[in-house]
Every structure is written in C-alpha cells, then in structure tokens.
C-alpha cells in the first residue's frame, strides 16, 4: 500500500463568523490564545484531537463537520 498524506482543512473562520464570535471569544471558549485561533484559521497549525473536539463542541457540530480530512496518495 502506498504511503498516504493527510491534509486537514477547516471551516473555523466561516463558522466563527456565522456564530458572531471574534477570534478572542473563540479562544477563550476553548482555552487557547488568539494566536492559536489565527494559526488554525489560516491552516498553518493542525490541532490535537482534544482541541478539535472542543472547537466542534462550541459550534454544536462534530469534528468531521468542522475539519475536512483529505487523503492523498504520496507520489
């Protein structure tokens, strides 16, 4: 089986704006810094399963609804 690389995209910014939260609001709700939210929204940082779960819970959604996993076969 060829090795697979997983890319993670997320809808945090979209969901945050839909719910009327600022980055600071969301950061306080999940007990992280605003810089972490910025990094997550820009896709530079991938969260742990715990943080992903907490973020999904803030929006009353599942992890799969917030984070989009794309599997790519490594060429």
């Amino acid at each position: 089986m060829p090795p697979r690389r997983t890319n993670i995209q997320n809808k945090i910014k979209l969901l945050r704006e839909q719910n009327g939260f600022t980055q600071q609001d969301l950061a306080e709700k999940v007990s992280v810094s605003r810089q972490t939210i910025i990094s997550l929204e820009s896709g530079r940082y991938n969260p742990s399963i715990f943080l992903a779960y907490h973020i999904a819970r803030v929006f009353n959604l599942t992890i799969e609804d917030v984070f989009l996993f794309e599997e790519k076969n490594k060429e």
Binding site: V32, S33, T36, P47, S48, F50
Partner: peptide
C-alpha cells in the same frame, strides 16, 4: 499560566 501550557505553545 493556562495559556503558556496550551498545546500550540508546547509544540
């Protein structure tokens, strides 16, 4: 203290 121990900072 709480923010210093958040996962991104530890990473």
């Amino acid at each position: 203290m709480e923010l210093n121990n958040e996962e991104r900072k530890i990473f």
